[in-house]
């Protein structure tokens, strides 16, 4: 379970996160959405223990993430901005990562390498952006993480690879009860995999809750306003509706 409470972070005069709460249940897939600059990546960097909060807590299964090696051993993170050691191949990276994560699965690594059809000995820096993302995904998922944090995971991937990627994520949730947090602008894909959603705006959690409940809630709002066209809402419509701004629902919390 990922639990963020009262998180604040400022960069100079700019308040990037404002008294933010977030809750991801164990075994669920949480979609984090928001416009550019809303604070998604900053929030993720707190959840992965990269950044130190100004105030507030970030806990995974009840333990503070920051500087907790054991928590990080159970976490897999794929950032939007990938990084590999210069001139390293997937094989080189594997030998490094394997030494850090106690639950590394050679079996899964082999299966995924075969599935994604990646060259093990070629320099990663020579890969296309999409292939680099696949390499990061293979290496991360082979650590058998209980908590998976994905920042724009399907950006730059073709539909076939995207489908494979989601398959592995869903399997981990189904088979190992993994907890997943995904940040993406691809709302249609998120809608297909997420069971709960958080909408971030200007560093604040504008709306958070179960996806289906959230759709029903927004639909009722639209009905009350006479805006309902009778069809069911998509995640994108919910997002746009929220971003369109109803002062009543701005601020922290939203639907619980």
């Amino acid at each position: 379970m990922i639990e963020v409470k009262g998180l604040n972070k400022s960069f100079g005069d700019h308040r990037a996160l404002k008294d933010l709460d977030l809750h991801v249940n164990t075994g669920s897939i949480y979609g984090l959405i928001g416009v550019n600059g809303s604070g998604k990546t900053t929030l993720i960097k707190h959840i992965t223990g990269v950044l130190m909060p100004d105030s507030g807590t970030v806990r995974i299964d009840g333990r503070d993430v920051f500087d907790d090696i054991e928590v990080k051993e159970r976490m897999g993170y794929i950032p939007d901005d990938l990084y590999f050691f210069g001139s390293y191949s997937i094989k080189n990276m594997k030998s490094f990562i394997k030494g850090l994560y106690p639950r590394w699965s050679e079996e899964r690594y082999s299966a995924m390498m075969s599935d994604f059809d990646l060259p093990e000995n070629k320099k990663i820096s020579k890969f296309s952006k999409g292939m680099q993302k696949q390499a990061a995904f293979v290496l991360t998922m082979s650590t058998m993480p209980d908590v998976i944090i994905l920042d724009e995971p399907v950006d730059g991937l073709d539909p076939l690879v995207r489908r494979k990627l989601w398959k592995y994520v869903m399997e981990d949730v189904a088979d190992r009860n993994a907890t997943v947090l995904i940040s993406s602008h691809n709302l249609k894909e998120l809608e297909g995999v997420c069971d709960s959603i958080g909408i971030l705006s200007q560093g604040e959690m504008k709306l958070e809750g179960d996806l289906e409940e959230l759709k029903v809630y927004v639909q009722k709002l639209r009905e009350n306003r006479g805006e309902d066209d009778g069809g069911s809402l998509s995640l994108e419509e919910v997002f746009l509706y929220e971003m369109g701004g109803d002062p009543m629902y701005s601020g922290k919390g939203g639907l619980k």
């Binding site: 990269v50 090696i69 054991e70 990080k72 976490m75 993170y77 990084y83």
Partner: peptide
């Protein structure tokens, strides 16, 4: 980001 998200303090 990557190095500090890995299992290091």
């Amino acid at each position: 980001s990557v190095m500090h998200s890995m299992p290091f303090s």
